[in-house]
Simulated scan of single mutants.
Amino acid sequence: MKRCASALLAIGVLWSTGSEALDLEQRRVEAMLQRMCARCHAVGRTGTSPNALATPFRYLGENKLYDPDFTQRLQDGYSSIHRAMPTARFGREDTEAVVNYLRAIQEPHTPK
Score class of each variant (00 low, 15 high):
R3D: 12
R3K: 13
R3P: 03
R3Y: 11
A5T: 03
L8P: 01
L8S: 04
L8D: 01
A10R: 01
A10M: 10
A10F: 08
A10L: 14
I11G: 00
I11R: 00
G12D: 01
W15R: 01
S16G: 00
S16M: 08
T17K: 00
T17Y: 03
T17F: 07
T17R: 00
G18W: 10
S19H: 12
S19G: 10
S19Q: 14
E20Q: 09
A21R: 12
A21F: 09
A21C: 07
L22T: 14
L22Y: 11
D23L: 11
L24P: 01
R27Y: 11
R27H: 15
R27A: 15
R27W: 14
V29N: 03
L33N: 09
L33V: 08
R35M: 08
R35A: 13
M36C: 04
C37D: 05
C37E: 05
A38F: 12
A38Q: 15
R39L: 13
R39F: 12
H41I: 05
H41K: 05
A42V: 06
V43L: 09
T46M: 07
G47C: 06
G47T: 06
S49F: 07
S49T: 06
P50Q: 05
N51Y: 10
N51D: 15
N51C: 11
A52P: 08
L53P: 00
L53M: 13
L53Y: 10
A54C: 03
T55H: 09
P56M: 09
F57A: 14
R58H: 11
Y59S: 06
Y59M: 06
E62A: 13
E62F: 04
K64E: 02
L65W: 07
Y66F: 13
Y66E: 14
Y66G: 13
P68N: 06
D69F: 02
D69M: 03
F70D: 04
F70Q: 03
T71R: 15
T71K: 15
Q72R: 14
Q72Y: 04
Q72H: 07
R73A: 12
R73W: 06
Q75P: 01
Q75V: 08
D76F: 01
G77T: 04
G77F: 04
S79M: 05
S79Q: 10
S80T: 11
I81V: 01
M85A: 00
M85W: 00
T87R: 13
T87Q: 12
R89D: 01
R89Q: 14
F90T: 02
F90S: 03
F90C: 02
G91T: 13
D94H: 02
T95N: 11
A97W: 05
A97H: 08
A97D: 12
V98L: 03
V99Y: 12
V99Q: 12
N100M: 03
Y101H: 10
L102R: 08
R103K: 15
I105R: 09
I105E: 09
E107K: 11
E107Y: 02
P108E: 14
H109C: 03
H109F: 15
T110M: 02
K112G: 07
